Simulated scan of single mutants.
Amino acid sequence: MLYLLGFLILIGLLIFLLKPRMGRVDFGPFWAGIMLTGFFMIIAELHRKIVWQRVTSYLDSYTGAFMVESSNPLVVAYFKKHRPNYIRGQLSGDLSWQKGLIYFAIKHLLTNCLTRPDFIAYEHEFQKNPSLNLIRLLSRIPLVVYTVKPPQGYISNKKRFDIQIFEGFDAKEM
């Protein structure tokens, strides 16, 4: 259910991002199950090199709309360099359980100056990250928040984020 809801919300992001470009787009989870007819938009959430190299050949021949997103900045950088017409997103959030400089850089969105994603998707519980707030103030990059569960969070996020991925309540009632 969560993926379907996220899928529908990201369609809005796709439309927003495609207006100036009208190029290809890419998206996330369960791309193989959705990539049946070319009618559906695909969100390819890719993290491991072997997977995103294989998926690229499928996406190149796919005639529908799609976007690629990853928490791995190497994936975002690869698509920026080799497939600049793909819409690319950087996933991030609390990575304090991971140790190392690269995880610190991803958590604080420091790799975005090199990877230049088309949108940022950030974990709801950790949206008070100073780096995210700075990007929100200085940039016009679309911001997506995931996964909002309390209805109060949905209401408070309306002004902060362009798109919200949520579960457990009906947003139409908000």
Rank of each mutant, 00 (worst) to 15 (best):
N85V: 11
V144Q: 00
W97K: 13
D26Y: 10
I42L: 14
F166L: 10
I9L: 07
I50Y: 11
L36H: 07
R140S: 12
F119K: 01
T111D: 08
A44R: 02
S71N: 09
E45T: 11
T56G: 03
V68C: 04
L110P: 03
Q127N: 12
V55T: 14
G100M: 04
Y122A: 02
L137P: 03
L95S: 03
Y62E: 05
L114V: 05
P84E: 02
I87H: 01
P84G: 00
E125T: 15
N133L: 15
G23D: 13
I43R: 04
L4W: 11
G64V: 02
E123V: 06
R24T: 08
N129H: 05
L110I: 13
I135D: 02
K172Y: 11
L110D: 01
P29V: 10
N72M: 00
S57G: 08
K80R: 15
K149E: 11
G89V: 01
L4S: 09
L59C: 09
V68F: 03
L2N: 08
G12R: 11
F40E: 12
Y122N: 04
L101V: 08
I120E: 02
H47P: 00
L109N: 02
S57V: 14
T37G: 08
T147D: 00
I87Y: 00
L36T: 10
F119N: 02
K99F: 07
Q152S: 15
G23Y: 13
L132R: 06
G89W: 01
F119T: 01
I50N: 10
Y122C: 05
S57A: 12
Q53A: 03
K99S: 10
R24F: 08
F66K: 05
I34Y: 12
A44L: 06
P150C: 08
I155P: 00
R88C: 07
I87V: 15
H124W: 15
I50E: 13
R24P: 06
S61L: 10
Y3G: 09
R48S: 10
Y78W: 14
Q98H: 13
M174P: 04
F166E: 04
K80A: 03
F27S: 04
P29F: 10
Q98P: 00
L14I: 12
P150W: 09
Y122V: 06
D162V: 08
D162R: 11
Y62C: 03
Y103I: 05
Q98T: 10
C113F: 15
K81H: 08
P150F: 07
T115W: 03
D162H: 12
P142Q: 05
L138V: 13
V68Y: 03
F40R: 07
K172C: 10
I155T: 11
K19A: 10
H124F: 14
F27P: 00
Q152N: 12
V68W: 00
S131Y: 10
F126I: 07
D118A: 04
Q90T: 02
L114D: 00
V25F: 07
N133W: 10
F7H: 13
L18H: 11
I42A: 04
I50K: 13
E167R: 12
P150N: 14
K19D: 08
K107G: 06
L17I: 10
R136T: 02
E173Y: 09
S131G: 03
E45P: 02
P151E: 07
P117L: 09
L5A: 04
L110M: 14
E173S: 14
K159F: 08
P84K: 03
F104H: 13
P29Q: 08
